Amino acid sequence: MFATEPVRIVAVSAGLSNPSSTRLLADRLAAAARDRLDATQDRPVDVRVVELRDLAGDIASHLVSGFPPPALEDALAAVTGADGLIAVTPVFTASYSGLFKSFFDLVENTALTGKPVLVAATGGTPRHSLVLEHAMRPLFAYLRAVTLPTSVYAASEDWGASGDEYTEGLPARIRRAGGELADAVSGGRAVSGASRTPGLDDEVVPFEQQLAALRTA
């Protein structure tokens, strides 16, 4: 019976537009974690994405009243009950968005204790990539979560770029981070990204085409 319990991965996306690069990154990271889990263990994998833009009014109401509406209560329960968490925010004013922070302000400060968290962010320029280190890691350290070694920042120019001999392209970073999350929740052994046989994920797909796919999904 125990073996049939699913591994629960929850991705929190704070993107404001629809579609958004933030949601796209959350989906890609969740898919990478699912792929690793499917390859390394027999338990089913349950992936859920929490879109904060759909909960903005509920978040504001809870901050004022102290009582979460049902949809927000369900989202908070999903986050705190997950085996592994993916947290993705757009960068606003050199930090995480207000919507992202407001949501995690509603999470009890012990509810994520020991939970593996993959942090990621999107922005228009690579200059904001340090938001992962100076803002997001401290936030989840306060919440007593375990942030994974690899964090992922995706600037506009990273989408559809294959990287170079000194840096990994975005698909490789997504694979590595998703693999770390999968290994953290399952106790599996990490597999070097260099040993992976290149596949379709390595193909360079223009950003506009990736967003268009979200519109038709």
Rank of each mutant, 00 (worst) to 15 (best):
D46Y: 00
T22W: 08
R48Y: 01
D35Y: 00
D38I: 07
V45I: 14
L37D: 04
T22D: 04
R34F: 00
L52N: 11
A39M: 13
P19F: 14
D27Y: 00
D35I: 02
D46M: 05
S17G: 06
L52D: 08
A14T: 05
L29V: 02
A31P: 02
L29G: 02
D42L: 12
D38Q: 15
V49G: 00
V12I: 09
S13C: 11
A26S: 13
P44A: 04
S20A: 10
Q41N: 07
V49C: 06
A30Q: 03
N18D: 15
R53T: 03
R53N: 06
I9P: 06
R34S: 02
V50D: 05
D46C: 00
V47Q: 14
R36G: 00
V7W: 15
V50W: 04
L25Q: 09
V50N: 05
S20G: 09
L52G: 03
A26C: 05
V7Q: 15
V12H: 06
L24R: 13
A39H: 13
D46L: 08
L16E: 11
S13P: 09
T40C: 07
S13R: 10
R53V: 06
T22I: 08
A32Y: 00
R43N: 01
R34C: 03
A30C: 03
R53C: 01
G15M: 10
L16A: 11
S21Y: 12
S17M: 02
V45E: 11
S21E: 12
T22P: 03
A31V: 03
V49S: 05
D38F: 08
L25K: 05
L16G: 10
A31T: 08
A26K: 09
R53H: 12
V49R: 11
A39G: 15
A31G: 07
D42T: 15
Q41L: 13
R23Q: 10
A31E: 11
A26P: 09
A39I: 07
D38N: 13
L29F: 03
A31C: 03
V45T: 13
D27H: 02
A32Q: 04
V45M: 10
R28G: 01
R34L: 01
A33G: 01
L24Q: 07
A14V: 07
A11K: 13
N18L: 14
D38L: 15
S21H: 10
A32H: 02
D27W: 00
D35K: 02
G15P: 12
I9N: 05
R8T: 07
L25V: 11
R28I: 00
A14D: 05
P44N: 04
R34V: 02
R34A: 02
A33V: 00
R28A: 12
A30M: 05
D42I: 07
D38S: 14
